[in-house]
Design a binder for these strands. Structure first.
Length: 462
RNA sequence: UCCCCUGUAGCUCAAUCGGUAGAGCGAGCGGCUGUUAACCGCUAGGUUCUUGGUUCGAGUCCAAGCGGGGGAGCCA
């Protein structure tokens, strides 16, 4: 008999239907009247299915093995539920324990666990309410991202994970090598990357942007969505060593177009999650962050604030607020400044733009004032910087001058410069940290709980 | 990388001034019950992160190490 997913049973099945469901036991409540209630979850939705198993069901003699975490298969009739809390329940006719989960050793209990503890058992945590919900929200968000771009005619480009661009302007990189490091250490010789697999030093990518620009400047609007790696020794609730980034890149877009796209993009993804993950979002709002639904509705219903960096600095200076770090034009804004803008002052997402060029990378387009570049950051309450982007410098001479200014050799980026040498066009793009988006959407405090298997300094189990 | 906090039962925590370890939940057993974070009773469960030091005596004080958390920086 074909397995029916529990989501379908709960939402669509009518009394009288015979179905087979399979999943994992969340709880069992025994009655001495020779029957038991099982709550079975198969991950297809937040709610579990209540199954009634009595002595008429084959396999009832093994009901004691159906402890929390055991896997079961149940065939039975869908019935109207006389109890509270569910529309229908399943009256078992055939009951089978597929795999036991001895109660004295199975780590997950019928009670809530701390997220710190669950991180130590990341192979079992998707069986919990919270991580099941995160998994479904993540899936819906990822799907909505592709929908958003596909419906606008963007191409999904798979950019390389391994790169030999030594300095892409962002953070420390992980080296990729097949050299025998132990041997090299033993004989205490220098590392010669010419002998390495790629014939030069290679790393894991910190961004697909430069490659995405190649396709934007040839086939048009495109985006990447893939893993990204930063070897920074940062230990915060907002950083991962391996995370997923979405990077659209559009020819003929100026900064304003870029901001409009970023705003529509976030709004679409959040709208999709609100629409399709109702039970999961209800759970996050009740148990994780009581303001998360209000925050998200506020984002979908109101325009983002757009504010030039210079005006933001003025606002901060006039705020009367005491900051640990003083605000001054030319300085990068600190977390406390961003939080004041999004959480205290505007209470909604803010797009800051036109930053001083001295604090931004070489590829951002210089403004005529000679002081600022066409950069934009989308800041959201609680999570902070969720998108960073810019209009790209399309003028070869200006780009080369900026590279030199930033201590880079234009020749190392010869192919990037070629895009400006041949048929250059104004273009723009941005990068969104996918796990930060999940943080925003779920209200989860720690980004390590927003990715199936987190990689952070000193931790890459599972 | 820096600052602060923290490590005790399966989990979450308590243990006064340094005096030989306790609760709730979970688990096992029994009772009760169309139950649903069920309820009631009983029972079991500990190398107090590691190493060293101070002391008659260390969960408690000191040092180092390892792990966890929060904040900062860097960033997405």
């Amino acid at each position: 008999m074909l397995r029916t997913r529990i989501a379908q049973v709960l939402n669509e099945s009518q009394p009288g239907e015979i179905v087979n469901v399979r999943g994992w036991v969340r709880t069992r409540r025994d009655s001495k009247q020779d029957f038991s209630f099982l709550e079975v979850n198969d991950g297809s939705c937040f709610k579990g299915l209540q199954v009634v198993v009595d002595s008429s069901a084959t396999g009832y003699d093994t009901i004691k093995d159906a402890t929390t975490g055991a896997s079961v298969s149940i065939t039975g009739e869908v019935k109207d539920s006389p109890g509270k809390g569910q529309r229908v329940e399943l009256q078992a006719s055939e009951f089978c324990v597929l795999g036991t989960a001895p109660a004295d050793s199975y780590p997950l209990q019928k009670k809530g666990h701390s997220f710190e503890f669950l991180r130590e058992i990341a192979h079992l945590r998707p069986r919990t309410n919270t991580f099941g919900a995160i998994t479904r929200v993540r899936n819906t968000a990822a799907t909505a991202i592709h929908e958003f771009f596909q419906s606008r005619g963007f191409y999904y480009i798979q950019t390389p994970v391994i790169t030999t661009s030594d300095c892409e302007g962002a953070g420390q990189m992980f080296t990729v090598t097949t050299l025998n490091l132990e041997r090299i250490a033993e004989i205490q010789t220098q590392i010669n990357y010419a002998q390495d697999f790629f014939g030069k030093h290679a790393s894991l990518t910190v961004s697909g942007q430069l490659e995405a620009e190649i396709f934007a400047c040839s086939v048009g609007d495109c985006y990447t969505f893939g893993p990204t790696f930063r070897a920074e020794n940062s230990n915060t609730t907002r950083h991962l060593a391996e995370f997923w980034m979405v990077e659209p890149e559009m020819p003929f877009y100026e900064l304003t177009d870029n901001m409009e796209l970023a705003e529509a993009f976030i709004r679409h993804v959040i709208g999709a999650v609100l629409e399709r993950c109702g039970d999961d979002m209800e759970f996050f709002n009740q148990r994780i962050d009581k303001t998360v639904l209000d925050t998200l509705r506020n984002i979908t219903e109101n325009d983002f604030i757009r504010l030039p960096y210079t005006e933001a600095v003025d606002l901060l200076l006039q705020s009367g607020q005491k900051f640990e770090y003083a605000v001054e034009w030319g300085c990068d804004l600190q977390s406390e400044h961003e939080r004041w803008l999004t959480e205290q002052h505007f209470k909604q997402p803010v797009i800051l733009h036109d930053y001083p060029r001295t604090i931004k990378p070489f590829y951002m387009r210089c403004n005529d004032d000679g002081k600022t570049v066409r950069a934009m950051d989308v800041l959201v309450p609680r999570v902070g910087d969720i998108i960073g982007g810019s209009q790209r410098e399309e003028r070869l001479d200006v780009l080369e001058a900026r590279m030199t200014e930033c201590g880079l050799n234009p020749q190392d980026y010869w192919w990037y410069c070629d895009l400006r040498r041949y048929g250059t066009v104004p273009h723009s793009g941005f990068g969104l940290g996918f796990e930060r988006l999940i943080q925003l959407v779920t209200g989860m405090q720690n980004i390590r709980d927003c990715i199936p298997f987190h990689r952070v300094p000193k931790s890459a189990e599972f």
